[in-house]
Design a protein around this nucleic acid. Structure first.
Lengths: 206, 206
DNA sequence: CTAGCTTGTTGACACTGTCAACATATACCC
DNA sequence: GGGTATATGTTGACAGTGTCAACAAGCTAG
């Protein structure tokens, strides 16, 4: 009514729901997303969303999956550039990853936290997360080939690095880091410490 | 009625609520905690909890605070031991920290996630978390004094280390790490990489 | 044009957090 | 002791939630 002669059928409610849900998440966190509010905001009835998503969890899973796509795209776009050294590739990847989380805190939480998404295992999300992880593993493999870091299961190295970066993003998002507001500095310190810690060294130490 | 002549007054409802809420969190996550269910499980009416906690968030904050106490206690108990090297102190601290998270996933999530606890700033939780962080900073100060790692703002080092450990715990809890079930191995790799990365080195590199 | 599928709507149910009004037990004072 | 204030517990009520069933409107293929 307010908008251009809205017909009975919405047109593309599914996409609109995903957009609107993402907007609500940004505004007030995942907890603020309500099936009824979604309908209200889109000028549609409260049960309309159920024609497109089995339940609220399914909706949120779809939003999270979209988030993974965006993150993955950003990481890849940032990686392509020129013929970068593997050190630089890793550094950039970490920075971009944390930046995404910092810019989209609620969205990031939804993607990597199980709280809002019940405890159910969602294969779609698992796959999306795995794809990003595999990208990271690839960087470490290249990095090993260049001879800069220890030869060792790159999955383990990737887990360690991912932990550090994810942890930094999480703590920052949850407001646990207050002593400084220099997130970029912390990111640099983190990536440097990781790379130094994985570097080959003369004297073995265990 | 079922229990030893329950009187009108419960005796110590407040403590019972905290215990029961913690139990429910363990069983079904923070989302499964319901004021009404709490009353039901304790044989008390649905509004009774409101005599002890202003609202549900206050209850959960109290539970989270109790969790911080337990974690802090565990870390300290584990630290006291003998005259350990600072390397060993850090290693143990990291291990104990992750172990706590792995053993009490929902509780840990509640402590460090803002999702379940609205976005409000809770000074009590902040303080509790800070106390634990300060403990970590102390370890790094000692570690610097022993000459093993770079002289640098120990807060930064502590943030980097905390990030890695918190990230590992989070990823593990959320089921993101599946390639291996050797959490202990990952903990060791993480702490070693961190220490190596902070070690003093001959040739400077930037 | 009509039959059927898709997408939307409304009514209803059980559940939630929370408040106000009321009831009972305990603590304390004379 | 008696009596009153306070702390603690109870019930009724309200608005809000996710979700389903029954119904309605529009689109699409024959």
């Amino acid at each position: 009514m307010t908008e251009s002669a809205r017909t009975y059928h919405h047109g593309d409610l599914r996409a609109a729901l995903l957009d609107e849900a993402a907007a609500m998440i940004t505004e007030g966190g995942a907890a603020s997303v309500t099936m009824r509010a979604l309908g209200r905001r889109l000028g549609v009835s409260r049960a309309a969303p159920y024609r497109h998503f089995a339940d609220k969890t399914a909706l949120l899973v779809a939003v999270a999956a979209a988030g993974f796509d965006r993150l993955s795209g950003r990481l890849q776009a940032n990686d392509g550039g020129g013929p970068l050294s593997s050190v630089e590739r890793f550094r950039r990847m970490g920075e971009e990853y944390v930046r995404f989380a910092v810019e989209n805190p609620a969205h990031y939480r939804l993607m990597y936290g199980k709280e809002a998404l019940t405890r159910q295992d969602r294969p779609e999300l698992r796959e999306a997360a795995n794809a990003i992880f595999d990208q990271l593993v690839g960087v470490f493999q290249a990095h090993q080939r260049s001879g800069a870091i220890k030869r060792q299961d790159p999955h383990v190295q990737a887990y360690v690095a991912w932990s550090a970066v994810h942890g930094l993003a999480s703590l920052w998002i949850e407001g646990q880091i207050q002593a400084t507001d220099d997130i970029d500095g912390l990111i640099r310190q983190t990536t440097r410490t990781l790379l130094d810690g994985m570097r080959v060294r003369r004297r073995r130490e265990e």
